[in-house]
Design a protein around this nucleic acid. Structure first.
Lengths: 237, 237
DNA sequence: TCTCGTAAACTTCCATACAAGTCAACAAGA
DNA sequence: TCTTGTTGACTTGTATGGAAGTTTACGAGA
């Protein structure tokens, strides 16, 4: 079940080309406009966007390091399937790091932060009922706010790299699961931070991020052709 | 205080060029053969290794994503200084993830694993007295073994990306701090895994990885010109 | 002496040609 | 029919020339 999404493929001929073509291709892959297995050809994409092979090639390099494409020299370049173990372990890393982040936050008790978060919660509830892509943006913002409040901007950038794989899953599951529940969990995390209970705060975050594990089998079953190395055995941690 | 290190710059003209030049330059940067601030020039390096500019350029792209160099279009490409906040937050991420890894391991209690680890401990003690670079390799192997035993190979690969910054610090601190103490801490981690005490195991790992925080100010003070954005205030978490 | 404009010497970025490897179609022969 | 070798159309990797931007040196003029 692939949903219609908007791809921003605006192109400015006067700006640097490589970052633009990278952004476009990355977005097309994550939003499943270029589904797993799609063959990408340097000369073909170069013709399509009316540029030379070089920027396309450099984009392939970046995407391959992100695990979004695989370059087989002299053979071809393909969009990777979503690697199941990678998604699970990305989630594992996120849980470990974000649990420690909220644990730190619970020790500081910043009034302004709490206020900001509560304001975000309201907004989340509003968009939860209307637009799923908008909710994804709000959700990302919430987690980023926590990281930055703990002075972990750089660590968050690391996590974003992992998220490219998890985001592909999120766009597959558009409209699948009730966003209201996620907002409720966010609320509990904020509550525990406010109470300055580090243990409970990190526990709430862990529970929240483990939700993906529950949803994953359903998403995989409904999109088998998009996944690779699916193994139910791996789910139990 | 920069130490002499061996750079493996063997070059096979028949194999793909880009991966080789990437490996060589990365190693030279991490081992401070190319210290922070060094100017890198596409044509100059191409001439030096008798290849074309193209593989050099692609290597620049990869290194810049790793944060080891910064490419300023139309200006120049330089080896970055070691970014102090990045080092701290890389360590923070490692602690969070590795603490959870040993926590999982303590729940499984794999006899073969314990045996392997104890064997590694002996070896660590041996090389600790002779070669510091060898010890670094053994240390890395120990942590990787833990990650793989927990089925977290992919998460480990991710951590390795972070390590490129921390490794630069490690090569600066060659011979600074007694490796025997690190081995002892490794031993305590293994002990707690064997006892199947998840809480104590992760605590031991956290304590072990926090050692870097203690050593860091001294390393920075002795290598001020290699660091950027040093701020003692950031050290207290 | 100081300011400012110019030109030359760099830098990376992009385009293009060719090299080398892979694969698929197809025909010849058993 | 099956096997096998050849050929050609692909693929990505590498080399190289030129475009566009930046910095630096330097001299003219005040």
């Amino acid at each position: 079940m692939v949903h219609e999404v908007v791809i921003n493929d605006a192109f400015d001929r006067d700006a640097a080309i490589t970052p633009q073509i990278y952004r476009i291709l990355r977005e097309r892959i994550i939003k499943n406009d270029l589904p797993p297995g799609s063959k990408l050809s340097e000369p073909e994409l170069a013709r399509h966007y009316e540029i030379s092979r070089q920027p396309v090639r450099e984009t392939f390099i970046k995407l391959s390091e992100e695990g979004l494409v695989i370059v087989r020299p002299q053979r071809k370049t393909q969009v990777t399937k979503i690697d199941f173990p990678t998604v699970l372990q990305s989630r594992f890393v996120r849980e470990a790091v974000e649990a420690d982040i909220v644990s730190e936050l619970a020790g500081s008790a910043d009034r302004a932060l709490i206020k900001d978060l509560r304001s975000q919660l309201k907004n989340q509830l509003k968009v939860a009922k209307t637009s799923r892509p908008d909710f994804i943006n709000e959700d990302t913002k919430f987690h980023r706010t926590l990281a930055e409040a703990a002075g972990k901007e750089i660590a968050w950038k690391f996590l974003e790299g992992l998220n490219s794989q998890m985001d592909r899953v999120r766009f597959l599951s558009l409209g699948q699961f009730p966003a209201e529940q996620l907002v409720e969990e966010h609320g509990k995390i904020v509550d525990q931070i406010e109470r300055q209970d580090a243990t409970q705060a990190s526990a709430a975050m862990r529970k929240h991020l483990r939700r993906l594990i529950n949803d994953l089998p359903k998403i995989v079953r409904e999109n088998k052709e998009f996944f690779d190395r699916f193994d139910p055995e791996l789910i139990d941690a």
